[in-house]
Write a protein that binds this DNA or RNA. Sequence first.
RNA 1: GACCCCUUCGUCUAUCGGUCAGGACACCAGGUUUUCAUCCUGGAAAGAGGAGUUCGAUUCUCCUAGGGGUCGCCA
Length: 473
Amino acid sequence: MNDVVVRFAPSPTGFLHIGGIRTALINYIVVQQSKKKDPKSKLLLRIEDTDITRSKDEYKKSILDGLEWMGIEWDEKPHIQSESIDRHKEIAFKLLEKGHAYKCVCTKEELETRRLENQKLRKNIKRLCTKCKNDSATQQLEKDFCIRINIPNDGKISVLDKIQGLVVVENKEIDNFILLRKDGTPTYMLSVVVDDHDMGVNIIIRGDDHLNNIFRQLHIYKSLKWDLPTYAHHPLIHGDDGLKLSKRHGAVDINEFKKKGYLPQAIINNLILLSWSPKKNDENIEIGEIINTFDLEKMSKSSSIFDYNKLNHFNNFYLQKEENYKYFEEFVNENSILKNFFDIDKILMKKLFNTYKKNINFYSELENISKIYYDEEFKTILNNELDDNFNIILNDFMKHLDFIDVWSKDNLKNCINKFLELKKIKFPIFGKPVRIVLTNLKEGPPINDILFILGRKNTFLRLNNYINSANKL
RNA sequence: GACCCCUUCGUCUAUCGGUCAGGACACCAGGUUUUCAUCCUGGAAAGAGGAGUUCGAUUCUCCUAGGGGUCGCCA
């Protein structure tokens, strides 16, 4: 049996952010690699919804949608953690029965007091509840107790993590954490272990904010004599202030990336380059090649900062690829502004995109650009770059334009060049004002491209409107 | 505060003791161009500090400093 079972286990208490996507992505890559060796390998998805007050269906949906959009496919249907609470309770009592756990009646207040006392004395005592374990009356209670794990005070425990290497911790550093709350519900620490075991998970890949949890969880595995999984704790992504990535670092929710017009490929490319790098010098790498070359054990242990500049670079690279045009259409269909324009004139939108794709980093940048070209009420804002000389030349130019039979980029370019040659004027003197007349912008694509995008009818409409308003002055 | 992890250009990274410390993004300059952009060429830019091991340390060991993570009847 060489099948690998990994899992991604988000809790639906918030939107799926870029850090979560990274964890899911690494799990996905590892399972795809494993499937080549053993097709029975699988990536399971588990929704950890045991925090009833904070878990929301809307978050669960956004997580599923986000993964799907990213192309991170999982096997089987999602496991819902809250559905196996009875099983978790059963295990808690089994541990109690075997002496690996004990009943505790310490109140929150008592524990808090002891915690503060220890802090004052600068003592490092992790075991806050010390009396309950040996109090026979407490151990015989039928209700109103929580169940804590019973970990020996001496000795040490170690793990050989695929990324972190050998990590050793003294048992006395590990607290007698709670398995089952007073209200009878299981805690995260217990549920994870039971679910991972029951689901057959044999490699646990997650962020290193869970590194310290390995040891707590290993004690549960060992007490139950269950097979130990292999661990791989990857470093976290930080914001540019060096702190764990969160909302205040800007767009971190995966759905925001989608809304802005980023491509999954670009996000994947950017994310996989954090803590890992391909052997080749070219950093553009797509999922297939990543699966062929990625090595979990070559991941670095240090955290990294998510670079939006580099993401923009990759996104610009991928959105220019012809085969990715379908993503543009998908985006347009979900963007109300662009969808509206698209329905008015599909060809115009396509022309726009093809001309501007070199200039934009993400699709939503086209919103403002489209507004200029789709504006039926377009009026040139008059300014001092548009003088009488120019107006006279423009009149002449329109006559030349009128002779163009096929309104193509090349014909327009030829027409412009011939006209300038004939009039013996340099391009900028004429071109810049034309750009302003047609778009109210001083910068933008070449004039022939602008004329081409607008089409014959709109070009003449805008030029005539301008001339009429200029004449009124 | 305790424990765990980390530390190479601004950012992401390469280097498995001997390299002019390489690449990518960003930045700057020059060139091409019909403005802007693209594109091409070039440039500036790094081993946290200190000991030790060694003929030789960015690389191995230790110390210090800095950063991060974790210390819940949250997950």
